[in-house]
Structure formats: C-alpha cells, structure tokens
C-alpha cells in the first residue's frame, strides 16, 4: 500500500509517501530514529502489518516539520530516506 501523508494548500503539495509493503519487510525501521524531528512512528496497520507512518500532529504542518532537512540554499539531507534500506519513503516536494 502507498500511504500518502500530508496536504495541499495554496503554497503547494506536501506529501510523504510510504510504501508499506516494503516497510513491513524491514524489522529495524531505522528511519524512525534517523528523523531529527521525530515525525515518524511505528504502528500496526489495519491488515496487522507493522509499518511506519507520519505522526498525526505533523500531518497538517509537514512542510514546516520537514523544513530543517530541506534548506533552500544547501543540498537536501533527507535522513529518513538515507536510513531506509528499501527506498520506501518518497517526498513530493
């Protein structure tokens, strides 16, 4: 399943897409600890798979929560993507 967390507003589209089929295969889930803003959480989904998702409190402000990893003037440093061994995390912006 591709779970899209985020929103679209007047300033653009801000979604983090997580491929839960890939995510469920990974036991360590190092992305959760790697995220400096701690926006990711491990939970059991409706199909009883242990996967990651974006914490409820960050979903409507994800542009700002992820802001520190996305400087405008420097090269992006997406810790979550680097830590994910299966390429299950995609950012839309």
């Amino acid at each position: 399943m591709i779970a899209n967390y985020g929103y679209k507003d007047g300033s653009g589209e801000f979604f983090i897409s997580i491929d839960t089929a890939k995510c469920a295969q990974c036991e360590a889930k190092p992305c959760v600890e790697a995220c400096p803003e701690k926006i990711l959480v491990i939970f059991t989904d409706d199909y009883d798979d242990e996967v990651i998702g974006v914490k409820e409190e960050h979903r409507k402000k994800i542009k700002y929560s992820c802001g520190p990893c996305k400087p405008i003037t420097e090269k992006r440093n997406l810790s979550c993507q680097k830590a994910c061994p299966s390429g299950a995390i995609v950012h839309s912006w």
């Binding site: 399943m1 779970a3 899209n4 929103y7 679209k8 979604f15 409706d46 199909y47 409507k60």
Partner: peptide, 12 residues
C-alpha cells in the same frame, strides 16, 4: 477490497 494506495485532504 484491500487498500493499495490512499491520499487524504483534511487540512481545510
């Protein structure tokens, strides 16, 4: 009937 992908708009 299993979800393969979803997206939600609950911001406004």
């Amino acid at each position: 009937g299993k979800v393969t992908s979803f997206i939600m708009n609950d911001k406004c």
